[in-house]
Lab assay of single mutants.
Amino acid sequence: NQASVVANQLIPINTALTLVMMRSEVVTPVGIPAEDIPRLVSMQVSRAVPLGTTLMPDMVKGYA
């Protein structure tokens, strides 16, 4: 089972991601792979992401 990136806190719209905002977790459906966490740092979210939400490619500007 592949771990995905999950929000560790509420991430407001247009916030630049930092390591403390993200954790890896095995979830369904699968989201952005956990190994991409270093690449996500400083990228902005395109919408508010609630705590515990799996990050999907369309939620991060410039990821897809």
Rank of each mutant, 00 (worst) to 15 (best):
V5T: 11
N1G: 15
A64F: 04
V5R: 00
L51M: 15
T18M: 06
Q44A: 07
L17A: 00
G31Q: 02
A7K: 01
S42C: 14
A64D: 14
S4E: 00
D36T: 12
L19N: 10
L55W: 00
T15E: 08
I32G: 00
P57L: 04
V45A: 13
E25C: 05
T54G: 03
E25N: 10
L10V: 11
T28M: 08
S46W: 08
E25P: 00
A34N: 06
M43D: 03
Q44D: 04
Q2T: 12
E35Y: 06
P12W: 04
T53Y: 09
P38K: 12
Q2E: 15
V27S: 05
D58W: 07
L40N: 00
L51A: 14
A3C: 09
L40Y: 02
D36I: 08
A3N: 15
M43E: 09
G62W: 05
S46L: 13
L10G: 12
K61P: 11
A34I: 09
L10A: 12
N14P: 00
R23I: 11
A64E: 12
A16R: 06
V5Q: 00
M22A: 02
L17I: 14
N1M: 15
V49I: 14
A16L: 13
A16T: 06
R39G: 12
N1D: 15
M21E: 02
L40I: 05
A16S: 11
M59D: 15
M59P: 01
E35K: 08
V49C: 15
Q9A: 14
T54N: 02
V41I: 14
L17S: 00
P38S: 11
S42Q: 14
L10N: 10
Q44F: 10
A7R: 00
N1I: 15
T18C: 03
T54D: 00
A34M: 13
N1R: 03
L17K: 00
V6H: 02
L17Y: 00
V26C: 07
G62L: 06
D36G: 06
M21F: 04
T18H: 06
S46Y: 11
E35D: 10
R39Q: 12
T28G: 06
M21L: 07
S24D: 14
L51G: 14
G31S: 03
A64P: 15
E25I: 06
Y63P: 04
K61F: 06
S4T: 05
D58K: 07
M56W: 08
M22L: 14
V20C: 10
L17W: 01
L40A: 00
V49M: 04
I13E: 14
V20A: 10
A48F: 08
M56P: 02
V20H: 11
A7Q: 01
D58F: 12
E35R: 04
E25Q: 06
L55C: 02
R39H: 12
Q2N: 13
Q2H: 09
N14T: 05
A7I: 11
L19C: 06
S4L: 01
A34P: 08
Q9P: 01
A48T: 11
M22C: 03
A3H: 14
A48H: 11
T54F: 03
V49A: 07
A16K: 09
P57H: 13
L51R: 12
G31C: 03
P38N: 13
V60D: 02
V6T: 08
I13N: 13
T18P: 00
D36L: 07
S24Q: 10
P50T: 15
V30C: 13
P50S: 14
T15M: 09
D36C: 05
L10S: 11
T54Y: 02
T53K: 07
R39Y: 14
D36F: 11
A3T: 12
A16D: 05
P33D: 08
Q2Y: 14
A34E: 10
L19M: 11
A64S: 14
S4V: 02
G52L: 05
P38R: 09
A16Y: 06
R39N: 14
N14E: 11
A3E: 15
V27A: 06
Q44I: 10
P29H: 07
V6P: 01
A7E: 00
P33L: 10
T28H: 05
A16Q: 13
L19P: 11
T15Q: 06
I13K: 08
T18R: 05
P38G: 11
V26T: 10
T53S: 10
G62F: 07
D36R: 07
A7L: 03
D58P: 08
S4R: 02
T53L: 11
P50V: 05
V6N: 02
I32R: 00
S4W: 02
T53G: 10
P38F: 15
N14G: 11
K61S: 14
I32T: 00
I32M: 03
S42P: 01
V6F: 01
N8T: 15
G62M: 07
L19Y: 13
V20F: 11
S4C: 04
M43H: 10
T15R: 05
A16W: 07
P12M: 05
L19V: 09
V20L: 08
V49N: 01
I13S: 09
I37V: 07
N14H: 08
P29E: 13
V27T: 11
G52T: 02
Y63D: 03
A7D: 02
V41W: 04
G62Y: 08
V26A: 13
N1Q: 15
V30S: 14
R47S: 10
M22F: 06
T28S: 14
V30W: 06
V49G: 01
T18L: 07
V26M: 06
N8E: 09
Q44T: 14
M43C: 07
